[in-house]
């Protein structure tokens, strides 16, 4: 499995003045679930696209440093070569539908046809992806007739079928209703348990705190911190970086209840419950 290594990554979009990414360095181990947080315009989406090689190969622009997926330097390979290692799912489920397929089954096949897989292999992978995302019962539906949550899971299935080791999700639930979001989070968690590396950008801090092994905080293209959710959300300067900590952390902080062993504030409902249960009701 591939390790991700980012060294001094700098990037500026064409026709702009400011750096979208400004000297970012870190490593991600195989199988980790990483949450990326930060205010709008902090470079979250840009970083996502840098993992897939869309930056700089699709967008062009000024690029410095490097992003390595295992032994591969993403800058040196074509996007379609990398897509079998790194998959990406975007915010708007509608715009990820190819529009050239009439059923969910055929839609998922799109990427596999492009890779030139045998029919037998395609069917094996599509059946497996439908199963993993729990959408087998929609296989013969028109992709445009699905609900938002189902559509987004189909988009993830289309990527999973290409067998990537790493999946990037750029605000995958921001356009969905609570039920749709929950379906997507559950599906992503299952993938994570199977050992796929997950990198997710999300504004719902409670979810990031609940699912991530580590959280990266970005601001103005710079990486401010990259640590466990407890450490990140216990920082005193989060609001200055435009991030509101999870409700559970705010309560822990307001009542000054920390985890006795680690000295960190709670970040999930479970942790908050434990931290508060000692207090008189």
């Amino acid at each position: 499995m591939a390790r991700i290594e980012v060294n001094h990554l700098k990037y500026r979009y064409p026709h702009t003045e400011n750096l979208a990414l400004d000297g970012v360095s870190f490593q991600i181990e195989p199988g980790e679930f990483i949450g990326i947080i930060g205010k709008n315009g902090s470079g979250k989406s840009t970083l996502c696209q840098a993992f897939t090689g869309l930056i700089p190969n699709f967008y062009r622009g000024a690029y410095g440093g490097n992003v390595k997926i295992g032994e591969i330097n993403v800058r040196d390979v074509e996007v379609d070569e990398l897509c079998q290692k790194v998959g990406i799912v975007f915010q708007n489920p509608f715009n990820q539908i190819t529009g050239s397929k009439l059923t969910v089954y055929d839609e998922i096949a799109f990427g596999l046809e492009n890779l030139g897989l045998s029919r037998k292999e395609m069917i094996r992978r599509i059946d497996d992806a439908l199963e993993q995302l729990d959408i087998t019962r929609f296989r013969d539906r028109n992709p445009f007739d699905l609900s938002g949550g189902q559509m987004q899971r189909m988009a993830i299935a289309s990527i999973i079928a290409m067998n990537p080791e790493i999946i990037i999700l750029d605000e995958p639930t921001s356009q969905l209703d609570p039920q749709g979001s929950e379906e997507v989070f559950k599906a992503v968690q299952r993938l994570s348990q199977k050992g796929i590396t997950i990198i997710m950008v999300e504004h719902k801090m409670e979810k990031i705190a609940a699912y991530s092994d580590r959280v990266m905080l970005l601001d103005e293209g710079k990486m401010i911190d990259f640590d466990t959710p407890q450490k990140i959300f216990s920082r005193d300067d989060l609001l200055e970086h435009g991030v509101l900590p999870p409700a559970f952390t705010r309560i822990g902080r307001g009542l000054d209840r920390k985890n006795a062993a680690t000295g960190e504030y709670p970040v999930t409902l479970k942790e908050a419950k434990e931290a508060l249960e000692g207090m008189a009701v």
């Binding site: 209703d177 609570p178 039920q179 929950e182 409670e206 999870p246 409700a247 559970f248 705010r250 309560i251 307001g254 009542l255 409902l269 908050a272 419950k273 508060l276 249960e277 009701v281």
Partner: peptide, 27 residues
């Protein structure tokens, strides 16, 4: 298919009778 606000969920899990809507209220 809706969820309670996060604070409300926590207070219910802790067994409070009252419904709290914001972290500030609860604190």
């Amino acid at each position: 298919f809706l969820e309670q606000p996060n604070v409300t969920r926590l207070c219910h899990a802790l067994g409070y009778e009252e419904t709290f809507l914001t972290t500030d209220d609860f604190v």
